[in-house]
Computed example of a mutant assay.
Amino acid sequence: MMFEENPPSSYLTRAAHSEDSQETITAISHVLRDQEDTQLVPADDSESFAAPGDLPANPTSPQQRLAKLKLLMTQQKAEYESKIARLEQRNRELQWEIRDTQWQLGQQRQRHRLAEMKIRNAERAKEDAERRNEMLQKEMEEFFETFGEINGWK
C-alpha cells in the first residue's frame, strides 16, 4: 500500500481566493490524476488507502467526487468572476455612452433653442420691414398727392 504525505483533503480545504484559484485547480488535478494512476482510494477519513479489490461497486470514492466537485466549483467560480468582470466593464462603457449621449442631447437642445430664437427674430424683423414698407408707401402716396397738387397750381 501507498501513503501520501499530503492527503487530497489538505489541498481541498484551502480557501480558494481569486489569486490562488489556479493553484487550487492544479493541485486538485494532480491529486485526481495521482489517485486514478495508482488506483488507490481512501477507505475513510484516515490517511490509509484501500487496495483496488476492496473498492465498492462505484469506482469513484466520495473523496474523488468531492475533489471533482470542488474543481468544478472552482472552475465555475473563475468563469462567473470573469463574466462578472466583463459585464461590469460593459456596464461602465454603457454608462459613458449614456453620459455622452445625454451631453449630445443637451447640445442639440441648445442648438434647437438658438434656431427657434433666430427664426422668431427673423419673423419679427420681417414684420417690422413690412410695416416700414407700408408706412413708406403711404408717405409716398401722400407726397405724390401733395406734389401733384403743387404741380397742378403752376
Rank of each mutant, 00 (worst) to 15 (best):
T26R: 04
E88K: 01
P59V: 03
L40C: 02
V31T: 11
N121C: 14
D45T: 12
F49W: 01
P52T: 00
I28P: 01
L71F: 04
E93T: 04
A78K: 07
E23N: 05
S9D: 08
M135T: 11
P59R: 01
N121T: 09
R132K: 14
D44S: 00
A122V: 07
F144N: 04
Q63N: 09
N121H: 12
D20Y: 07
T101G: 04
E93K: 08
L71D: 00
G148K: 00
M117S: 06
L72T: 11
I98E: 03
A122R: 07
G148E: 01
P7Q: 04
A51Y: 05
E97C: 12
A50E: 15
Q110Y: 06
Q22F: 10
H112K: 13
R113L: 10
Q107E: 09
E116C: 10
Q39K: 12
Q64V: 01
E23L: 07
Q76G: 11
K70D: 02
E93W: 03
N6D: 12
E36K: 02
M73T: 08
P52F: 01
Q39I: 11
P52Q: 00
Q89C: 10
K154W: 13
E36A: 10
S21W: 06
E116P: 05
A78D: 08
D45E: 13
N91W: 13
A15M: 15
R109L: 09
E123I: 11
K154Y: 14
E5S: 03
L114H: 07
P7D: 06
I25A: 01
F144S: 05
H30E: 14
D34H: 12
T101M: 09
K126C: 09
M140N: 10
L69K: 06
H30W: 07
L12P: 00
F143L: 01
P62Q: 13
A67V: 00
E123T: 07
I150C: 15
L32P: 00
L55F: 05
H17L: 15
Q108L: 08
E139G: 03
R132F: 08
T38Q: 06
V41F: 14
N91R: 10
